[in-house]
């Protein structure tokens, strides 16, 4: 029976259904504890403003931190490949520190550690209509800086995958290093960088839950606070997990779509009709011809 269920629904969807049914089953079975399933259902289908806010924070922080991470990663990768030993050393040091220590320690150290020592206290900032609390600013930046250390290796692999002839051609046209990187190398490296970047962002979405340590009320903190207040840990944390699952699942579909688009143009693939990387990346195809696969 389980087999037929799995085969009909597909593993992933079967698991999802399982997750949804589990609390109800358990609520029915258990006798010693009383669960309050409405906490579970309400936070899924009638999320409170606090949950919506937490969801927004999780997405917003993830996106901004990932952008910071990509930018820092590009610079760190270029630093690691630089001719000057100083740049190589600086980039290496950065990656070494932020990959070598736990993110949780980094968060708490740079927020509580620094302020306790009187070295630095994070300010709150206002961008237009949005008032950004100090802990949110700190959390976003620290997560971004941490992410940059991981992105550095990914970007470096991407840059190294670009034919050295491209750099030579750009140089021979009188292009400087910066221009060569920006106009010639990085656009081509993007194709190698984007698939692992998708995985990094998936990770980022979940890892923001560590921001509970610096009391940012993102998704996890919102739920764990509610769980603590009501003692309905099971209901709230299960719902919390499902929210994360929803985010990463949506992202997963988006990632798969982007990667299909990228894969279409790989050298030697039969269905490639000469669309540029840019066209493929951003979906600028102007025909509806066969594309293989879906």
């Amino acid at each position: 029976m389980a087999e037929s269920l799995f085969s009909r629904l597909g593993t992933r969807r079967a698991l999802l259904v399982g997750c949804l049914l589990l609390p109800i089953l358990l609520a029915g079975c258990s006798s010693s504890v009383t669960l309050q399933p409405h906490y579970f259902w309400d936070s899924l289908f009638h999320p409170s403003p606090a949950i919506i806010n937490g969801l927004g924070l999780t997405i917003g922080i993830s996106v901004v931190a990932q952008i910071i991470g990509v930018i820092l990663g590009i610079f760190a990768a270029m630093g690691k490949m630089a001719k000057r030993r100083l740049f190589r050393w600086l980039a290496g040091f950065y990656v070494w520190i932020f990959r070598g220590t736990p993110l949780l320690v980094q968060l708490t150290f740079f927020v509580f550690g620094l302020s306790a020592a009187g070295i630095f206290k994070w300010p709150g900032i206002v961008i237009g209509p949005i008032d950004i609390l100090p802990e949110i600013l700190a959390g976003t930046i620290i997560m971004g800086v941490n992410e940059g250390a991981y992105m550095a290796e990914i970007v470096r692999a991407g840059i190294m995958a670009v034919d050295p002839g491209q750099t030579e051609a750009a140089k021979s046209l009188g292009m400087t290093y910066g221009l060569t990187m920006r106009r010639i190398v990085l656009p081509q490296a993007a194709r190698v960088i984007i698939p692992p970047l998708g995985n990094e962002f998936n990770n980022m979405l979940k890892t923001t839950s560590l921001l509970v340590a610096v009391s940012v009320f993102e998704l996890y903190n919102t739920f764990s606070t509610a769980a603590g207040r009501t003692y309905a840990s099971f209901e709230f944390l299960a719902a919390c997990a499902l929210w994360y699952l929803l985010l990463t699942t949506i992202w997963g579909f988006f990632q798969a779509w982007v990667e299909r688009r990228l894969a279409r143009g790989t050298a030697g693939s039969a269905d490639y009709n000469g669309y540029s990387l840019r066209a493929r990346l951003w979906g600028l195809r102007n025909n509806s011809g066969n594309q293989g696969g879906r």
Binding site: I184, P187, Q188
Partner: peptide
């Protein structure tokens, strides 16, 4: 300096064995 070398290269065109056209540009 890299900038000066780049300026000098502007006056020297080069054609490579393997073309090295930029594949992401028309």
């Amino acid at each position: 300096r890299e900038k000066n070398v780049a300026a000098q290269r502007q006056e020297i065109g080069m054609v490579f064995q393997r073309f090295n056209l930029f594949p992401h540009m028309t």
